[in-house]
């Protein structure tokens, strides 16, 4: 039997250790942001935020270097928004299906399938997209190369679909049953109930799910690297090629000499991406917190 004093000490020690590690680990995010900011500092002071974001030319190794990431920024947004346009209707449809229409056994099959789909690595999606989808475009539309923002959006849509479905389903199921009974007792049809009562009630949560999907799509690297075509021009349509920010970083980091403007500009690009994604996440946090705090208010 150990003495009470010793036990008390051990307890205190455990509590202190756990709290310290938790505090340190939660500082990781701040450390990452700060470190990347520091590495990119010369870009912000030499080029300026606005010029860096809106510059249409990326020639990092000529002297003097031209550092503008507008083409990549536009590509990133275009690819992610495109993915959302494709994935959101399907995702909401599937979530509504699982919450309202699917027999219990079918929903019980779909749920683990969603998990499996999120478990498939992005490089596999990218590979299949490039080997099958891009080939298909090339053959069908007789193109020299089938890579495009559209191809990337299609594959990203499949990748973010499970996230949209599972988060929307949670939001739909959070709607209290009274509304269902009230609606159905008034004699409205089930689809009417879904469209005019259920979905408006779960609106916030479903929007949050969409925002989450958007953040995922923006930060995804492998699929866009293998599908978007990787050209440094500002994309003019969904079907032109582009190079989203993650692909830029993945392609050029290895060849940029540390300390050069090229290297620093890649970190600046990374910071832009990081800030975008964190903003999206905070936005989603606001949406989802409101969902958790009881009923979805109008």
């Amino acid at each position: 039997m150990q003495s009470p004093l010793k036990r008390k000490f051990r307890e205190r020690f455990f509590a202190a250790a756990v709290s310290t590690i938790a505090a340190l680990s939660s500082l990781l995010l701040i450390a990452i942001v700060f470190f990347i900011f520091q590495e990119s500092l010369p870009v912000w002071s030499n080029v300026g935020v606005l010029k860096f974001l809106s510059g249409a030319n990326w020639r990092p190794v000529v002297v003097p270097p031209e550092l503008g990431i507008a083409p990549m920024l536009v590509s990133t947004m275009w690819v992610a928004l495109g993915a959302l346009v494709i994935a959101a209707p399907l995702g909401f449809g599937c979530a509504i299906f699982m919450a309202e229409f699917a027999p219990a056994w079918l929903a019980a099959v779909i749920r683990p399938v969603l998990n499996m789909l999120t478990g498939i690595p992005s490089v596999v999606y990218g590979f299949l997209g490039a080997a099958v989808l891009v080939k298909f475009f090339e053959v069908t539309f007789d193109l020299a190369s089938g890579e495009s923002l559209f191809a990337a959006s299609l594959v990203l849509a499949i990748m973010v679909l499970p996230f949209i479905v599972s988060n929307s389903e949670v939001a739909l199921r959070a709607v209290p049953d009274e509304y269902r009974y009230a609606g159905l007792s008034l004699g409205v049809s089930k689809p009417y109930f879904v469209l005019h009562i259920l979905v408006p009630m779960a609106r916030r949560g479903m929007l949050g799910a969409m925002v989450l999907g958007f953040g995922r799509a923006m930060g995804e690297t492998m699929a866009v690297l293998m599908l978007a075509g990787n050209t440094l021009l500002v994309p003019t349509s969904w079907f032109s090629k582009g190079e989203p920010l993650p692909a830029l970083i993945a392609l050029e980091l290895g060849s940029a000499t540390p300390g050069t403007p090229h290297y620093q500009a890649l970190f600046a690009a990374g910071l832009v991406l990081l800030v975008l994604v964190i903003m999206v996440n905070l936005l989603m946090n606001i949406f989802l917190r409101r969902v958790q705090s009881g009923v979805n208010k109008f």
Binding site: L29, I32, F35, I36, G215, G219, A250
Partner: peptide, 22 residues
């Protein structure tokens, strides 16, 4: 801490790579 961890989950993996590279 919850918000920080949640946001960390959203960091694009390439940015993690960038950080560790530097």
């Amino acid at each position: 801490v919850n918000v920080l961890v949640q946001s960390m989950m959203g960091i694009p993996s390439i940015v993690v790579g960038l950080f560790v590279y530097a």
